[in-house]
Design a binder for these strands. Structure first.
Length: 322
DNA sequence: AATTCAGTCAACCGCAGCTAA
DNA sequence: GTTAGCTGCGGTTGACTGAAT
């Protein structure tokens, strides 16, 4: 009612972003901070839909994004979190603040799925029964035991993964601040057309915090920063004040705070409407979320949502198991 | 050297939830 | 209370690249 349309379908540019477009977008965000995406195309002159601008920012230009090779630890975390959370990439990404949900999703689809399939088919190859399909070849009991084992391992690995000592000692220690806010591990594949320009964008962003964006951020912007990105490397902290996080320089600190769930401090309480259920749950805690809470939540919701596999589990089994 | 194939990933699409008018 | 817009999310697509033939 009376609102201008999000983006006109005609006259909207699609496809890969050019360095010039990125610069426009970054300069706008430098000035105004992320959020209010609707205003971006009109104010910058970009012939892009606001959605596209947001995506470009969150998946590519946002400071603190780590690109390229996933560490073993990250890989394990993704596998285990996926086992627990399902394809909730945004939720998973919140545990890996330097990775975008898109990246994690891509990595899952291109690497991990295959890897797991291989492992699975390898395992199935051992349990030969010959007469029926692999999935039918194991008895229900065997299947349940295997599932229990998997879940147990996932649970263990997740709690290990989320323990601070592990974080500092593990591959995640690689999350130490790097020289640039944008990745320097850009795969060669992309470098041909654009990698060098991301460096330029990175340079542009370096002065971002110094000229920190106007703190006035819409709730949605804060929500986006705190949840979608969760990196804390956006210049807008909770309460909309410039944080000391700057261009990914404070990444390890960010990581700490993430895993301490400090990002969900009470100042975000007004953003809960747009949060995912798990995010809302976390946010209400405003302190480290015990794994058991997460699990409880998962099982509260999980049975009804895509976790039907658990419904074959007796509740007693679950109770004993967890 | 040319062609085909497979892998990767940035970007788009459509939906759902929320909010403003 | 209703409608329409905004944002976020997950699934999917398609362009690009390198390897294989």
């Amino acid at each position: 009612m009376g609102r201008p349309p999000c983006c006109d379908k005609e006259g909207v540019k699609k496809g890969p972003w050019t360095p010039e477009e990125d610069i426009l977008l970054v300069s706008f965000i430098q000035e105004h901070g992320p959020g209010n995406w609707r205003a971006v195309p009109t104010n910058t002159g970009l012939l892009r839909c606001s959605k596209s601008c947001r995506l470009r920012w969150t998946n590519y230009l946002r400071p603190g994004i780590r690109r390229g090779n996933f560490t073993d630890h990250e890989e394990k975390m993704i596998i285990h979190l996926q086992a627990l959370l399902g394809n909730r990439w945004a939720a998973i990404a919140s545990y890996l603040p330097q990775r975008t949900d898109n990246d994690i999703k891509n990595y899952w689809n291109t690497h991990l799925k295959k890897k797991l399939n291989k492992i699975q088919s390898g395992a199935e190859g051992h349990s030969k029964d010959g007469s029926s399909s692999p999935s039918q070849s194991i008895t229900r009991g065997q299947w349940e035991r295997r599932l229990q084992t998997d879940i147990h391992m996932a649970k263990q690995a997740l709690s290990e993964a989320l323990s601070p000592e592990k974080l500092s000692n593990s591959g995640l220690s690689e999350l130490k601040p790097s020289t640039g806010c944008l990745s320097n591990t850009k795969p060669a594949a992309q470098s041909s057309t654009y990698a060098s320009s991301t460096e330029n964008i990175a340079r542009l962003l370096k002065g971002w915090v110094r000229n920190s964006p106007k703190s006035a951020r819409s709730n949605s912007a804060i929500t986006q920063n705190s949840l979608n990105n969760m990196s804390g490397t956006d210049s807008v902290s909770s309460e909309g004040t410039p944080s000391k996080a700057n261009n990914g320089i404070e990444q390890s600190e960010t990581f700490e705070s993430l895993f301490g769930f400090e990002s969900f401090d009470s100042s975000h309480s007004d953003t809960s409407q747009s949060m995912s259920p798990e995010a809302s749950l976390f946010q209400d805690e405003s302190k480290p979320l015990p794994l058991s809470l997460l699990e409880n939540w998962l099982f509260d919701e999980g049975v009804s949502q895509g976790k039907e596999f658990l419904s074959d589990f007796s509740l007693d089994d679950n109770a004993n198991f967890f």
